[in-house]
Simulated assay, not measured.
Amino acid sequence: MKPEKLGFVGLGQMGAPMAKNIAKKGLDLSVFDKAGTRERAPDNTSIVDSISALAKCCDTIFLSVPDGEASLSVISEIITTNDRRVTVVIDLSTVGPAAAREGNIQCKEVGITYMDAPVSGGQAGAEAGTISIMMAGDRDTKSEHDEILHAFAKNPFYVGNEPGQGQALKILNNFLSGTAMIASTEAILYGLSQNLEMQTMLNVLNVSTGQNTATSDKFPNRILTETFDAGFATALITKDVNLFIENAMNAGISTNVADTVGRIWNEANDALPDSDFTLVFKHLRDQIKATKT
């Protein structure tokens, strides 16, 4: 059955624009953010004062929170709400496979369907409604929500019937994204040391085999311009790479490359608190300058 009333928890850099795009389609959406709902709520949404209030008035609740601990905390509040109406929880957060599986177990015990549905595309993609969703769980539930998903995502993929599979795909995607950023930074810094211009390198790389998301988007739009505003935190890419390493090791997969990438991101995160992840370019460039002085 298609949901009539929707709820959204978490109105941060990703959550706010996703909720805004849902509301723009004229869908009935109530929102909550523990950091302050009124100042973050998109137009044409209803403001509620608690997660329990959402659970009592909504059929489906979307989550967009920072990590697994936050997600499970929200789920705990939902499932312990008396007289709840909610029957589906769609978790758009990157929480890791273990937290998604645990969320599914807790929801299932009280008759709520949990959908593991992390997103990719960054803040710009969330604002434009062009993000991808990697949804795992009950296929029929996904189908019932397709119209809503298309309101804020260009590519709502169904990736499997087991919650946790969406997270696995998301963290491997972000490991590749984080690797591309580090590898491209080192490559560009080498080119600059040989008196090549950054724009020239990007022009060539982006029609050659070295092309990747860092060279095609982050460098020309965020680094060359020195705006460093991709809208994705260094802390979050570090968290996701660490999740990939942990889960790959648990699966018996080699993490030789990931260990090196993870070390660099952890060092960058320690050095650059509250930063955009494109600032890793300046961080690594400054390290080189320091070794030459």
Rank of each mutant, 00 (worst) to 15 (best):
K2M: 13
K2L: 14
L6Q: 00
G12I: 08
G15W: 09
G26M: 12
L27T: 13
D28F: 02
S30C: 07
N44W: 04
V48H: 07
V48D: 10
D49G: 06
S50R: 05
I51D: 00
S52A: 15
A55K: 09
C58W: 01
I61C: 03
L63Q: 07
V65E: 12
P66R: 04
G68H: 07
A70D: 06
L72Y: 08
S73H: 09
I79W: 03
T80S: 11
T81W: 01
T81S: 05
R85L: 12
I90G: 00
T94A: 15
V95Y: 08
A100Y: 01
R101E: 10
Q106G: 04
C107M: 10
K108D: 14
G111E: 05
T113A: 15
S120P: 06
G121R: 07
T130H: 13
D138P: 05
R139V: 09
H145S: 09
I148H: 11
N155I: 07
P156E: 01
E162V: 14
L176P: 04
S177Q: 08
T179H: 04
S184Q: 06
E186Y: 08
A187G: 06
I188S: 02
E197C: 01
V207S: 14
S208F: 06
T213A: 10
T215V: 15
S216A: 15
F219E: 07
R222K: 11
F228K: 11
V241P: 12
V241E: 10
L243E: 01
L243Y: 01
I245F: 09
S254V: 04
V261L: 13
G262I: 12
G262S: 14
E267C: 08
L272D: 00
D276F: 14
V280N: 05
R285E: 09
D286T: 02
K292Q: 09
